[in-house]
Design a protein around this nucleic acid. Sequence first.
DNA 1: ATTTTTAAGTGTTATTTTAACAATTAAAAA
DNA 2: TTTTTAATTGTTAAAATAACACTTAAAAAT
Lengths: 235, 235
Amino acid sequence: MQKYSKQTRLLLAVDCIIFGFDGEILKILLIKRDFEPEKGNWSLMGGFVQPNESVDQAANRVLMQLTNLQGVYLEQLYTFGSTKRDPLERTVSVSYFALIDINKYETQLSKDYHADWFPLKRVPKLIFDQQEMVEAAKKRIRYKAALHPILFELLPEKFTLPQLQVLYENVFNTSMDKRNFSKRVLATGLLIKLEDKDKTGSKRGAFYYHLNKQSYYIKFQSFINIIPNPDTLLF
Amino acid sequence: MQKYSKQTRLLLAVDCIIFGFDGEILKILLIKRDFEPEKGNWSLMGGFVQPNESVDQAANRVLMQLTNLQGVYLEQLYTFGSTKRDPLERTVSVSYFALIDINKYETQLSKDYHADWFPLKRVPKLIFDQQEMVEAAKKRIRYKAALHPILFELLPEKFTLPQLQVLYENVFNTSMDKRNFSKRVLATGLLIKLEDKDKTGSKRGAFYYHLNKQSYYIKFQSFINIIPNPDTLLF
DNA sequence: ATTTTTAAGTGTTATTTTAACAATTAAAAA
DNA sequence: TTTTTAATTGTTAAAATAACACTTAAAAAT
């Protein structure tokens, strides 16, 4: 089925930067590459785009292979297309980033893929130009999270305000005033307070909240101001 | 040079959404496609990625072919990868958007490529999924312009505040108070007032300004608030 | 039983930012 | 000299933001 007969065809890959939050710090999921070149080295989860699937489907497939999770937040990040990025053969890669609830991730899968979670500040050396991909993903997640409520995708169904604040502080590498933070967050109208508490973090316990899915979908595209001074923090 | 021997290779293309501003409205530059399929129909300027060039280089090449302009603002937009987007053969396309000073565009080139400028509100039917690309570009340019001073790329070296305001009003499809607009714009510190005036628009004439390149590069990544209520306007 | 400890939860205020609003002026044309 | 037209400029009320500290719930320690 080659109709544009004089054109050269290339390999096309997808790579996923998979973020998770363990309650303390933001991490990404890496695997040990199981084929040459760079076999045995740390790598993003990726794969080649197949003839019968869209690029988005390829990203979803690859994400699914490693996490076995449905309905994960997955967004196209950037297409990396320099000629020498894969030394073996010219390959263009479309990168995606995913935000998953780390609690839903089954540890068994890590064994199958020799995968592991790495704190963003201690990412090992990665193959090819994947370091650049991770940097782009970090930048994008900040950018997006400054404007849209995507970070909830990293939390379990039920979460507390202190947990949410730690997440924001982590992503923006800053510390925030808890009074102002709670006002901003609650002012979005995205949260519903539950009656039970999380007692693991303190004696008093912190009330659980969950997302108001309705408001979430409606307001997702609106700019949400949870971050103070976003311009000073973003770059 | 096929080393990942079992993988399928695909055609990879780039497509450029080229924006220009004529002082009144925002336009995009389209060409009449000169090969099959869809020969003779309106299309974005595009081309296949060649083996010896990066994807970015391909986009630049294609942009250069049509505009003969150097140093144009060009940014990767999104990669379109559905399986059936090109009916003749599976082709993934990386879209880019460019912002050019329409005055620098030589009309002669339009003849060579049977190209023409179309107001954004009167874009003709486009081939394949290019309508989607244009929509994505419109969305992105708004998003980006709400936060970063990219719209200056559409203006000539010297421009007046009323011209700039018309451009912003056009991009955001709104009208703004000129007192507040000028305050916001001048508060960015990006503009330098010149001594001469543009007399074409009014009897009194409006002072020319030009970009302070230093501040521009420094502040480019900062959030710039020129748009009032960006959240209500963006989507 | 009482006290201590620890993190959760909550309000006020000064400052800054934003948005709404109209009169004056420069310069050509009449 | 007057008229016309668009450019230029400032004030103020309202809203948003950022800075700041005490009270409370509940377990742990005494």
